[in-house]
Design a protein around this nucleic acid. Structure first.
Lengths: 213, 213
DNA sequence: AAATTTCTACCGGTTTTCCGGTATTTTTAA
DNA sequence: TTAAAAATACCGGAAAACCGGTAGAAATTT
């Protein structure tokens, strides 16, 4: 399949210097031709609608779109495009989430240059691509009950989570949302339970680290 | 040597792909010779102790050291080295803090390749280097009273901050540090005051966002 | 040596959170 | 149209946090 033909790759990452880095890295991989580099999801999508590409290197943190959603969307719109995630997030939850979303690989930005280059080559061969660190993470906890994943929060929970993070007390939240303080407390407890933490400060730290706030 | 005008540069950034990007970018700047690339603060410091360099491109988020402290330390140890910060943090506080710490420039990673290259050239000329976005940020709020900056925390405060962030209660912290709960509470209050926040969840969010935890 | 900062410690009182429950209504998905 | 999920609400009691103080000892800096 990939024998005779060069493989087209586009990269979406909001850091130009990272784009530059990948372009430089991929110069050493002859089969690859870089069809485009984009710092915004919208630009990348626009390009995709015009030109089919074989591989999409996708950063999760984009200025204009959530990388998780974007991954699923691209997957649906262009099933022929293999998506490889380039991310800083080394949380197991994030990785599995993206893979569920249809990503063909997950690389950490702190992977070595050699490793990244090799990963791209592996991707060309159709392999599932995971950088070393990622493999270690996935291998570590066999997905027991500890942290099942990034908790799925309801609309209300997200709302209340943000208000906690900005310093509102239960009473204040209740007043602002026109609901009973008891209700807020219930949500608060559910939040802590979902995150598997014991008090609000940890809840907020974890949520902040997961960029859920 | 060949020419006295060659300027030696080293780069410390925990993302190899970013290093690669800078190397690639700086290939176009003839006066520059890259003396080394490091993904850890310790490696960079080791190199510096052996070879004087003219410019240090320094990422704030390092695996083994806090970039802010590192900046100050390098500044003190090697006054001849100009330090240019390469960061993702676009908070005014962070920028001013680093500049106070002796940085000769502050660039955002999302700056364009052209802008980065030009910035390096400016740095060679001895200018204070700030990327476009950074200039806008600094120009925006003339440093009113709102948030003076990133609070300077004492050793004890950092320690307690981390323990709060990991779910320890005042009593637990006191027991672990062999000090009185009253003392812990005092530190806790001082922390909140320094950050200008009213409760622990916000404290932890802000500290997390500023990567102080 | 003097000044400043940091760390330490205490008190009383108020507010808020946390935990153990239970339980109905509304919305959403199968 | 049923399940299931989400949102709502309540209670009491214990634990923890927050506030406004004050203040001495120890370390650091000047």
């Amino acid at each position: 399949m990939y024998t005779n033909k060069t493989v087209s790759v586009i990269i979406i990452d909001d850091h130009p210097v990272v784009l530059e880095g990948f372009v430089s890295l991929l110069r050493n991989v002859e089969e690859v031709s870089i069809a485009g580099c984009f710092t915004r999801a919208a630009e990348g999508l626009a390009f995709l609608s015009q030109h089919p590409v074989d591989i999409l290197l996708l950063d999760i943190n984009l200025p204009d779109r959530n990388g998780i959603e974007l991954c699923g969307e691209v997957r649906k719109l262009y099933p022929g495009t293999r998506i490889i995630i380039i991310s800083n997030h080394n949380e197991r939850q994030m990785i599995t989430r993206l893979l569920q979303e249809g990503a063909a690989g997950y690389l950490l930005k702190n992977a070595s240059a050699a490793e990244l280059a090799q990963s791209i080559r592996d991707a060309l061969a159709g392999k599932l691509v995971l950088s070393q660190d990622v493999q270690v993470i996935l291998a570590s906890l066999p997905d027991r009950e500890p942290e099942a994943g990034i908790p799925r929060l309801t609309r209300r929970e997200k709302e209340i989570l943000k208000m906690i993070a900005t310093g509102h007390t239960t009473a204040q939240i209740a007043a602002q949302l026109f609901i009973s303080p008891f209700t807020v407390e219930t949500h608060r407890r559910n939040l802590m339970q979902k995150f598997g933490v014991g008090n609000a400060p940890v809840l907020i730290r974890v949520a902040t680290e997961l960029r859920l706030i």
